[in-house]
């Protein structure tokens, strides 16, 4: 359940930046190969935000598909796992997308 740790980090990042203003929405970018599950983050988010300026905020998760580049033949292709081989047979592939674990943006309530 490392998603709970991840959500605590999200709360720390967003509440630092919000400087005591209420947060209405948080947008994340979560790669499908990041090792964190979007469902579990959504589930942990409500728990981690309790009693913070993020409490009740909407959570939007943009999932990013995995993409890789073959280090042997240079081809770029979609990957569903960390160990998909290139069509040329090589396992030496560099992942270029799908491992994102970022807070993209937040939406704040207007200051009163």
């Amino acid at each position: 359940m490392h998603e709970l740790s991840i959500c605590r980090n999200i709360v720390a990042i967003v509440s630092d930046a919000a400087k005591a203003r209420r947060v209405r929405r948080v947008t994340l970018e979560v790669g499908k190969l990041s090792g964190a599950m979007a469902d579990a983050i959504a589930f942990s988010f409500d728990i981690a935000t309790q009693g913070t300026v993020l409490e009740g905020a909407a959570l939007e998760i943009k999932e990013v598909e995995g993409r890789a580049r073959c280090e042997d033949c240079g081809a770029e292709f979609s990957v569903a796992t960390l160990f998909d081989a290139c069509a040329c047979g090589s396992h030496r592939v560099e992942r270029i997308a799908g491992e994102e674990l970022n807070v993209k943006s937040m939406e704040l309530e207007e200051a009163a």
Binding site: I6, N9, I13, L28, V103, S105, E107, L108, E109
Partner: peptide, 11 residues
């Protein structure tokens, strides 16, 4: 609301 770009790595 006010949109704020953060572009921060969670970890």
């Amino acid at each position: 609301g006010t949109m704020v770009d953060l572009e921060a790595r969670i970890l």
